[in-house]
């Protein structure tokens, strides 16, 4: 009986001892697995945190400056709006979206069978109308033209003058991809004298007459003025979509 109690007592004590031992071992193992195992690691982490803190402080300073700018501009909303609208108008005018009125020329080109027939040049204009008009508008732009339109189609930086032949073998001239027919009316606003000078030097009227095309140049100066319409076709970026998210 006494031996039995000894055994059970010893068993209980050994159980408690084993429990304490395993708790101690698992606690020490977990402590050793923690990432901060040395002073060096701790110091490195502190330095990283200091650098990050500095970067964040810089960001906060920038944001505060921007906030102050917005707050300062808050009272001048009307002025800012007017300035922005003025900028928008200027940009639109430079892009050719608004009509331009002023002194200029109107050049009309039309087939005239009464003009002398010269075999060498006959039919040349119809075959090279895009090149002929291209040369003409380039000369005008280079010599004082501010705005040009051909049959109401305003020439802007993305404009095109193309001679297009369809599958029915019908050739037509397209300006800004819009088909136009004779008479071709080139309306120009700008320095009238310079533009007339270049037309004279290049003998545009005479050259076209050789091709049986009557070219009439009318100048508008003083109280008379011409109107070049604004561009109303698609603009670059018209079909672009705003990127959503980041």
């Amino acid at each position: 009986m006494k031996r039995k109690s000894v055994l059970w007592g010893l068993t209980g004590v050994m159980g408690i001892l084993g429990f304490m031992f395993s708790v101690q071992v698992s606690s020490r193992l977990r402590t050793q697995m923690t990432p901060l195992s040395s002073y060096v690691d701790l110091r490195t982490q502190v330095q990283e945190q200091v650098q990050e803190n500095q970067l964040l402080m810089n960001e906060v300073s920038k944001d505060r400056a921007q906030l102050a700018m917005y707050q300062a501009a808050q009272g001048h909303g009307g002025e800012m709006m007017a300035a922005l609208q003025q900028d928008a108008r200027t940009v639109a005018a430079q892009a050719g979206l608004t009509p331009v009125i002023g002194p200029g020329l109107r050049i009309t080109i039309q087939y005239d069978p009464s003009l002398p027939y010269i075999q060498q040049y006959a039919g040349l204009f119809e075959a090279t109308a895009d090149q002929q008009l291209g040369l003409l508008v380039n000369d005008l732009f280079a010599n004082g033209a501010k705005a040009i339109s051909i049959n109401g189609q305003r020439l802007v930086t993305t404009s095109s003058i193309r001679l297009v032949t369809t599958i029915n073998n019908i050739t037509s001239l397209q300006v800004n991809t819009v088909p136009i027919t004779m008479p071709y009316v080139v309306t120009v606003v700008g320095d009238v004298n310079r533009m007339q000078a270049v037309l004279t030097i290049n003998e545009v009227v005479a050259q076209l007459a050789l091709m049986q095309e009557q070219c009439t140049v009318t100048s508008f100066t003083g109280s008379r003025s011409v109107t070049v319409p604004g561009y109303n076709g698609p603009l670059p970026g018209t079909w672009a979509k705003e990127v959503q998210g980041r």
Binding site: M14, G15, G18, M20
Partner: peptide, 21 residues
């Protein structure tokens, strides 16, 4: 029997995952 008690106690300590600071 005491050896069994020791093993059981140790197993209990590991299973319960009790740790001390």
């Amino acid at each position: 029997l005491p050896v069994l008690g020791l093993v059981l106690g140790a197993a209990l300590g590991f299973i319960t995952n009790v740790t001390i600071p």
